[in-house]
Structures are given as structure tokens and as C-alpha cells.
Amino acid sequence: MPRVADHDARHGQITDAVQRLIVRHGLAAVTVARTAAEAGMSVGLVQHYFTAKDEMLLATFTRVNGRFTARVDELVNRGEAEGRTIAEMLRQALAELVPLDDARRAEFLVRLAFADRAAHNARLAAVQRETLVGIRSRVAQAIDNGTACGEVAQGIDAADQALQIVAFTEGLALHAHIDPDGTPKPAILAALDGRLGRVFTGTCRHTQPG
């Protein structure tokens, strides 16, 4: 167990260093040598875990996605315990994709760097596609759940709406990154509410009093 824990800790130490380099200097600054210096370890130790830049980027992207998924799961669990509507929980989950604070901005920059690299790397592109499909699938499931409880009208195409909602959210994220002053948090959340309000038009039977 200690060896596994040490391996995971080293792995996380390296990917966190990659993320910091991307945030401060961009993807071009990420090299094995610079990552080693940023992580406070030897080049040889970094190469023990990762032999190439793409491997470090993939691991960092995977770590960012893991953090996002964990936060969303926590939001859903807390929302269900508090009796929140599906629309409210989905709005909170989607907002985690938007760079509204330093932590989410750092993660957004990693996703942006990964997208740039994936444009010319089939392996990374496959992971990027799988990740996107997974996010759309979770949104579609939320819409299906909304249909089952009455928040969403019958006959709504969940997959089609999920595609539109995720694309809309990614557009907001890009605007928030490029022009943060012009897209403040209240405006972002209001935009998400407006888009979701076009799908979640009803009231959940499970949250109605009595």
C-alpha cells in the first residue's frame, strides 16, 4: 500500500507541475526538464513516470477531468440531500466547466492546451472525444431524469438538447476566458439558467409540497 500511495503522490506531483506551467507560460513551456524543476524532483524521476510530453499532458488532462467529475458528484449528492431540482444541480455542474475562479481557470487552460495538442494527435483526440461524449451523456441523463419527474416535457430529445447545452456552455467558457470583465459570473449563471429554462419548463413532482 505505501508503494501505491507513493506512486500516486509522485504522479500527482508531476501533473500538478504540468498544470502550473501551462497556466503561467502555456503548453510550449512544458518540457520534462522544466516539469522536473517545477515539481522539485530529478529529470530521471519524471522520466520514470512519463517518457514523453504527450503522456504528461494526457495524465494532467485525466487528473483535471477526475477533479471535475468528483466535484460534480459532490454537487449532485449535496443537491439531492437538499432537495434541489435537477435543473439547479445541472446548472451548478455545468458552471464547473467555466473559468469563474482561479481553480477552474487553471483547469480550463489545461483543457485548451489539450485540445490544441489533440488536433494533431489521434490518441489524444480519441481521449478528448471520449471525455466530451461522457459529459454530453451525463447531461442527457439529467434531462431524461427531468422528464421522468416532470421538470422536462415529454417528447424532448435528450441527446439533441445535451449537445446544444454542452456546446453553449463551452462557448460561455471561452468568452469568460477571453473577456472575463465582459462576462462576469452573474451573467454566466443567468445565461446558463436561461438556456436550461428552455428545456426544464416544468416542476418536479418529487419536490412539490405534500
Rank of each mutant, 00 (worst) to 15 (best):
V72C: 09
L75Y: 07
V76E: 06
N77G: 05
R78I: 04
G79W: 08
G79F: 01
E80T: 14
G83I: 05
T85D: 02
A87N: 10
E88H: 04
E88F: 10
E88P: 07
L90D: 01
L90I: 00
E96Q: 12
L97H: 11
P99K: 13
P99Q: 09
P99I: 08
L100E: 06
R105S: 12
L109D: 01
L109P: 06
V110Q: 08
L112V: 02
L112P: 02
A113V: 01
F114W: 03
A118G: 05
H120K: 09
R123W: 04
R123F: 08
A126D: 07
V127R: 14
V127I: 10
R129T: 14
G134N: 07
V139M: 14
V139L: 00
V139T: 09
A140P: 04
A140M: 10
A142I: 02
I143H: 00
N145P: 01
C149I: 15
C149M: 09
Q154W: 12
Q154G: 10
Q154E: 15
G155H: 13
G155R: 09
D160V: 12
F168E: 06
T169C: 11
E170V: 08
E170P: 13
G171E: 04
L174Y: 00
A176N: 07
D179C: 07
P180R: 07
D181I: 14
T183P: 00
T183H: 05
P186E: 05
